[in-house]
Simulated assay, not measured.
Amino acid sequence: MSKETSYLKAGYFYRNMRGLVEHAALLQKLVYLRNVEPHRRCVRFCPTWGLYSSDYASLLPSVRNVLRCFAIALSRKSAVLSGEAAACVLGIPFLENNKLMKTVTVTLPGRMKPPARNQRGEHVTYSSRLLPPEDIVIENGIRVTSISRTFLDFVASGSKENALSFIEAAFYQKRTSKARVARDLKNMPKLAGKPDALALLSMARENSESLYETKARYMIEVAEIFGVESIETQAVVAFTDTTYRIDILINGFLGIEIDGRSKTKNNPEALIEERIREKRIQNRGYVMIRYHPDELTSGFISDIFNLLHNHQKLKAA
């Protein structure tokens, strides 16, 4: 498991990324390239802004993405950061947040036309989608698309998994609500992806606590596994002395925990507590299974199908 993956699971970006951006802890690292001494090596984000190579090397890919987005925004007068770039500046994570962003997408307000290709600069992509003023917000002094519009742009780009992880992270951060996003989408003009965005929003939950919980649940839902009758998120199992929650609970008995091993690695006390927790839940009649994020593949779906099928056979015997 990469360092980035463990941070994502631990809620690092859910809880801290927005704070890093808001307090300018990241922005202070940007360097105005025209003032750099000749002997200092820099990574160039755009013609005017970059980062000292020594600082760049120590940053996680997602943090590099945030800095690149700010640098591009500072070098553009009218353009509005959109899609993944908007999400980075908003401080709201998404599943592919841990991959280096090759290009930063921007959109011009209203019906302004993008500049000629030879005037756009490196690593910048212009979207030609209509962008009304009400879909633009100022975040930390940078013009970005609103949360609802960013969600729509994610869907229109073809990444529903990214879109769902983004909007559920926004719910977790209490930056918006499902009702508000639905209202915003309905009030938007007829843009590509709008019907799909409304349909995907209907699947969203407001209590998912990690990007990978969202991914796992979405995989189960779209797979339409035979025998799945109900899917609960953060299902409560109450005891007299405490209350536990199961990441995903299928049909009221099959509990799925995502990345549980990262909580106990190199921590014997946490491992013992986790085993006690799991045993107590199992004694209530639940079947518990755990998955690392890297295990969320077709094999994950097959396992669930087999467990449900076997459970049904035992009931019928």
Rank of each mutant, 00 (worst) to 15 (best):
I167S: 00
E224M: 14
L200V: 03
Y244Q: 07
K174E: 01
G193D: 08
D153G: 06
T242S: 13
S177P: 01
A197D: 02
V155H: 08
R217F: 10
R205D: 03
L200W: 01
S202Y: 04
L191H: 10
L201G: 00
T214D: 07
A238F: 15
T176D: 00
S165C: 10
A204P: 00
T243K: 11
Y218R: 09
M188C: 08
F151M: 00
F226A: 15
G158W: 06
R175E: 02
Y218E: 04
N162G: 09
A169L: 02
I248G: 03
D153F: 05
A179K: 03
P189Q: 06
A192M: 13
A163H: 04
I246Q: 07
T233D: 07
S202M: 10
Q173E: 02
T242W: 15
S230R: 12
A169N: 02
S208N: 10
E229P: 14
S202N: 14
E229T: 14
E229N: 13
D196N: 13
T214Q: 10
N207I: 01
E161F: 06
M188G: 04
A199P: 05
S210C: 08
S210R: 02
A216V: 09
N187G: 14
E232Q: 13
V228D: 08
D247R: 07
E206P: 06
K186V: 09
A163L: 03
Q173M: 01
I167C: 00
L211Y: 01
E209N: 14
M188K: 04
D153W: 04
T176C: 03
L185Q: 02
I225A: 12
K186T: 10
R180M: 03
I248Q: 05
S157A: 11
S208E: 03
F226C: 15
L152E: 00
N207R: 04
S210D: 04
T240D: 15
I250Y: 11
E209W: 09
F226L: 15
A216L: 09
N187Y: 14
I225K: 10
E232S: 15
T242P: 09
R183E: 12
N162P: 05
R183V: 02
G227W: 09
Y244M: 09
I250C: 12
E221M: 12
M203E: 14
A156C: 08
Q234F: 11
N162K: 05
S202I: 10
I220M: 12
D241H: 09
Y244K: 07
G252T: 07
F151Y: 02
I167M: 01
R245A: 11
E221G: 06
T233M: 10
L211Q: 04
F151V: 01
S230I: 07
T233G: 08
A235R: 14
I225F: 15
